[in-house]
Design a protein around this nucleic acid. Structure first.
Lengths: 195, 195
DNA sequence: ATTTGTCTTCCTACTAGTAGGTAGACAGAA
DNA sequence: TTCTGTCTACCTACTAGTAGGAAGACAAAT
C-alpha cells in the first residue's frame, strides 16, 4: 500500500515541512527520526551532514519549481494567465497549508548563518524565479497584455518581493487570505485595460 | 569610558543582532555570554527564559520604532516625504549593516514555532507599522500628493510587504542596493505627478 | 545450486559538545 | 540588613555526528 516512496524522499519531505515551519536551525535529525520512524543514524547514512541534507532539499525544491513553472508556461495561453496561475498556486498552498511558505524565502532570511553550500543554492533559486518572471513579463509586454513602468527584470524583482512579503504578512497576521489581498492588486496594476 | 549602558540593554543589543542574523533558534545564551563577557547564569538573572528575553526585545524594538516613526511624522513636512524618509532609513540600515533586517520580519517567518508571547508581539508590530503607513497614505491622499488605487489600509499592506520582500531579496542576492531598487519604484508609483 | 563478496539500508550504542535553566555563594550598595 | 548583580558549579535534555555490526539483495564464481 506504500506509494513506493523512497526513504530519502521521505526524509526530504519531512525536513522540508520542518524548515518551512522553523528554518534551518528549527529542526534536528531527531525530529525527522521521530516523524518517519527511523533511527537518527540511518538519516546520516542518506545525508551525512545537515548541510548536505538541506542542500539536497533546496536542489530538489528548485527542480520541482522549474518543472512547475515550465508546465505553467505550456498550459496557460497568455502571459497574463501565467502570472495569475502562479499566484493562484501559492494562494492554494497557503490556504490548505500544504506548503504555507516558500522554502527558499524562509532560508533567505537566515542567509548570514547558512552553510555556503545552502546559501548559494537559495541564491540560485531566487535568480531562477526572477528570470522566469522577467520572461513572462517581457512576453506580456510584447503582446501588449502587460504594461511595464520599468525594465522587465526590475518589475520581476518587485513582483517577487511582493510575493515573499505577502507570505510573511499572511504568517504574521495568521491570515492566509492576506497573501492574495496583497499580491492580486500588484498583478492587476500590471494588466492592461482590464475591461 | 563606558557609555553607562546597562547590562540588560547590552544583552538585548547583542541578542537583537544575533536574531537579525539567524532568527529565534539561531542564537543561544552562550553566544550572548561570549559577546559581552558575562556568564550565562547572569543573563538568566536579567531574563529568566529565552522567551521572556525575546519578548522584551520585541517590546523594545516596537517602542523604538514607534518613537522613530513619530519623529518622522513631526520632522517631515509632507506625507510623501515621510514615506521617502522611512525607506531611506531602512536603506541606510541595510547599507551600513547596522540593522540589516527587520527584527519582526525575521521572527514573523518563524511564527509557527515561536512562543506565543513572542508571536503576539510580532503581530502587534506588524499591526502598528501597517497602521502608521495607512495614516501616512491617507493623509497623502487627502492632500492629493499620493494617488491610491485601493483603500489606504490595503495599499499600506502592499507597501509593507514590498519592504519586507525587498529586505529578503537584498539578503538572498547579497546586494544591499536591491532593497532600494525594489522599494523606490513602489513609492514612486504612489506619488502624484512627480514633476 | 551454492557459495562468496559487495552493496545498501538500517540498527544499537556511543561521543563530544551545546541547549536552556537552576542552586547557592559572595561582594558591594542601599 | 536586605537587595542587586555577578559568579562558580552543576543539571538534564538535546545537538550533530561516528563506530561497528546485522540483514537482506544481487551478481559472479564455484
Amino acid at each position: 500500500m506504500n506509494a513506493m516512496i523512497s526513504t530519502s524522499e521521505k526524509i526530504l519531505d519531512v525536513a522540508q515541512s520542518l524548515i518551512v515551519a522553523g528554518g534551518y536551525n528549527g529542526f534536528s535529525y531527531a525530529d525527522i527520526s521521530d516523524a518517519i520512524g527511523i533511527r537518527k543514524a540511518s538519516i546520516h547514512h542518506h545525508f551525512p551532514t545537515k548541510a548536505e541534507l538541506v542542500a539536497a532539499l533546496v536542489d530538489r525544491y528548485r527542480q520541482q519549481t522549474e518543472l512547475g513553472l515550465k508546465a505553467l508556461r505550456e498550459q496557460s495561453a497568455s502571459p497574463a494567465d501565467q502570472l495569475q496561475a502562479y499566484v493562484n498556486f501559492w494562494q492554494a498552498c497557503i490556504q490548505d497549508a500544504t506548503l504555507p511558505f516558500c522554502v527558499c524565502a524562509m532560508l533567505a532570511g537566515e542567509t548570514p548563518m547558512l552553510p555556503e553550500e545552502v546559501a548559494s543554492r537559495v541564491r540560485a533559486h531566487f535568480h531562477h524565479l526572477a528570470g522566469w518572471l522577467t520572461s513572462v513579463l517581457r512576453a506580456g509586454a510584447e503582446q501588449q497584455l502587460i504594461r511595464l513602468d520599468k525594465r522587465p527584470d526590475d518589475e520581476a524583482q518587485m513582483l517577487m518581493a511582493s510575493v515573499h512579503g505577502a507570505m510573511l504578512s499572511a504568517r504574521a497576521f495568521g491570515d492566509p487570505g492576506m497573501f492574495a489581498a496583497i499580491v492580486k492588486p500588484q498583478i492587476a496594476r500590471l494588466l492592461v485595460a482590464n475591461r
